[in-house]
Design a protein around this nucleic acid. Structure first.
Lengths: 140, 140
DNA sequence: CTTTTTGCAAACCCTTTGCAAGACA
DNA sequence: TGTCTTGCAAAGGGTTTGCAAAAAG
């Protein structure tokens, strides 16, 4: 499988690099389509997946929305997943104590490749919206 | 909203409690449908979601498959997500050092409710399958 | 030229929803 | 009774796939 360079591939990569935050595939598609209207959604999906597989961009599973988000940052860092809107945001944290895990039981035979720490919560925009609407406590 | 008990709700709960591992909604549906063939998939989905919201069963987002899995265990424990088949398995770990996180920057205004530690890797069945087929290194 | 990549549309998977009929309290 | 819950079928969203035409090397 010899890999070829195409304008669509570059547009996809550039769009991720210049997108603020953690865009979904559809976010990227819309950006590109706005200036290159004939690009296909399938092409964008394929190229994003390819770029992530090649390690050129990051791939983030959203805990909250279930969908896939992409990330220009390749270094190890932490994400917050907003339970209200599903958005993924970078979180700067440090450990008081660095954790180190020890696998106590491998009876299930699971082979650990890596671990992720995911923060779950609410983003500023969603809390602001709730405060404005004052609907926090309202149940049907 | 007064909640009512139905046979479907009990069947759903019982199916989760007796299912080994971490079934998807569809896994549970198939179990119930095999002996109570008129149950609707929507009912199972609704009841699983309800039971999880009520804290009677656990809900697990699968990193690997993107879908939702359910869990009979309600205590805090750790999961391994198989990148090959998407299965969720329990992992017994202990910390050499308990981590404690400190949020260094809240410039993004993210409000942390909880955090999850997710182990990513391969389950025994998938590694066994790979070994048998000997297809590890084969690329198209 | 050969093989990869594209665009299109349809297929797919998993989950949710609208609604009338049925079941619980 | 009143209203919560069910079953059905259809809609939904996010992503993937098959295929012929176009483009890269």
């Amino acid at each position: 499988m010899e890999r070829r360079n195409t304008m669509q591939k570059e547009l996809t990569y550039d769009a991720v690099m210049s997108y603020p935050g953690h865009p979904s595939a559809d976010d990227i598609y819309r950006v590109i389509a706005s200036e290159y209207s004939t690009i296909s959604k399938a092409t964008v999906y394929r190229n994003l997946s390819l770029l992530a597989d090649e390690g050129k961009i990051g791939r983030v599973e959203s805990f909250a929305s279930g969908g896939i988000h992409y990330d220009k940052r390749l270094d190890r860092h932490y994400h917050g997943h907003c339970i209200k809107c599903g958005k993924v945001v970078d979180i700067a944290v440090s450990y008081d104590k660095e954790p180190s895990f020890k696998v106590v039981s491998q009876e299930d035979g699971f082979d650990i490749i890596s671990h992720e720490v995911v923060f779950v919560g609410t983003c500023r925009e969603c809390r602001k919206k709730e405060k404005e609407n004052g609907t926090e406590g309202i149940k049907d």
